[in-house]
Nucleic acid binder design. Structure first.
Length: 420
DNA sequence: TCTGGGGTCCTAGGACCC
DNA sequence: TCTGGGGTCCTAGGACCC
């Protein structure tokens, strides 16, 4: 058996974004609300409040559909930075219980409490203590579902078993039963495509997956087939790891004290336009704004990127994206923009719905000072603006070129310069 | 007048170098 | 004239997660 002594706790905040807003704003409490992107009319529900879920609203449902199902729903544009800040607060709480904290997403963490809890009774007591601390420090609206199991994969499956505010304990001998009571896509790592392919192979539950020859799974899914086989056995036969560990994104080997944010692999932003457009000037303006946001986050984290990926989604929901790698790394929004526009410009940009870019191949440290005075000047201007942004928050400054009025006054053609 | 926005990793083919 | 192998980088595309 896979290290049977491990005890993993998975904590998943319930309706997290919505709960945060309801905690902050008493007017929203007890009401069906949906947290959305910026353009509420063209967005989806990122998180539905517990009240909205009870009325049939589901995550990722379009706002249009949510409104049809639940006419009283109120939409609220989300504030990712706020949610991220609060994530740090609850991870700090977890760290007062164990140093082995592995943040999994903005509202989920794994805790290895093997040493601290000793057994499953101790683990249950610890889970209840953590829940009390969350209530005390973050307010009673923010609740969590907790799963306790011998590995990450089962702990996550367990936490999803009872929502909201559930506590599910799955001892090693109960893991297979938990799997047999679950749907294939309840498991983190099996999405709709894989489920469909498994169905086509005659596999529709974990019992069938367990009994399916491992070699055949590997033939069909390569290394992922090995993982599927091990997952179906819940680590009883051979070691199994959580999907995130399998995918190599585990942070468990890294110290989690101090900086809870794992090293990012990419920084990106995208934006669904208020209405589809074929106007290159409009697209350029949005792209520049997005590039600036990416650049700002990278400079804040002292990283530079060598690769830029630019992408668009068209009105028919087809999309196009390309990436390009550059010799000189950068964290300057202007350069990121130019790289991204070089990628998009040759494409027939007609009826564009969404535009975005992402920067990757990151390295730590800022770029070398430029040999050119103009660029050095620009670097110092950016530093000053970054300082302003740190002090007064995002949106304290904008490039002239990203302002709509600029475009109206420059109808003869689009023009960027280095003034801000 | 349907479908956001932030990420992660894997696979596979081609180019290129030694 | 035949045909290598290993390694790395780049790019596209397809999955998955929240």
């Amino acid at each position: 058996m896979d290290n049977p002594s491990r005890i993993i706790l998975h904590i998943d905040m319930n309706s997290y974004f919505a709960s945060v807003e309801q905690q902050a704003n008493p007017f929203l409490r007890g009401k069906p609300i949906g947290i959305t992107g910026k353009n509420q009319e063209r967005s989806v529900v990122a998180t539905a409040s517990i009240e909205a879920k009870a009325l049939g609203v589901k995550t990722a449902m379009s706002t249009w559909e949510a409104k049809k199902i639940c006419p009283s729903i109120m939409f609220w544009s989300g504030d990712p930075e706020k949610y991220s800040d609060i994530m740090h607060r609850f991870n700090t709480i977890y760290e007062s219980f164990t140093p082995h904290v592995e943040p999994f997403s903005v509202d989920e963490s794994f805790l290895d409490i093997t040493e601290e809890a000793e057994d499953y009774f101790g683990a249950t007591c610890m889970a209840q203590a953590i829940r009390s601390r969350l209530h005390e420090e973050l307010g009673e609206r923010i609740t969590a579902s907790i799963g306790i199991a011998p590995n990450n994969l089962m702990a996550k499956l367990a936490s999803g078993h009872v929502k909201p505010n559930g506590l599910t304990v799955v001892r090693p001998e109960d893991c297979l039963k938990l799997l047999d009571d679950s749907e294939l896509d309840d498991l983190c790592g099996i999405g709709p495509r894989i489920k469909e392919r498994l169905h086509a192979m005659g596999i529709s539950n974990f019992k069938q997956l367990r009994e399916f020859p491992r070699e055949n799974l590997e033939h069909e899914f390569h290394s992922y087939g090995t993982w599927l086989h091990e997952a179906a056995w819940a680590g009883v036969r051979s070691p199994v790891v959580g999907f995130s560990e399998y995918k190599g994104v585990s942070q468990s080997s890294k110290p989690t004290t101090g900086d809870l944010t794992p090293d990012a692999k990419s920084y990106g932003h995208s934006y669904t336009l208020p209405e589809n457009t074929s106007d290159a000037c409009v697209l350029k303006r949005y792209l520049f704004g997005l590039a600036d946001k990416v650049g700002w986050r990278m400079r804040r984290d002292n990283v530079t990127a060598r690769r830029v990926t630019a992408f668009v989604r068209f009105g028919d929901f087809s999309s196009h994206g390309e990436q390009r790698t550059f010799h000189e790394p950068t964290a300057d929004g202007m350069q990121l923009f130019h790289m991204a526009w070089r990628i998009l410009e040759p494409i027939c940009l007609v009826d564009v719905r969404l535009i975005g870019l992402s920067a990757s191949l990151l390295s730590h440290g800022s770029t070398q000072p430029s040999l050119f005075k103009k660029e050095r000047n620009m670097t110092s201007v950016l530093s000053a603006l970054d300082e302003l942004q740190k002090r007064y928050g995002s949106g304290v400054w904008k490039r002239g070129a990203t302002l709509q009025t600029e475009f109206k006054s420059r109808s003869s053609g689009f023009h960027f310069d280095h003034e801000v």
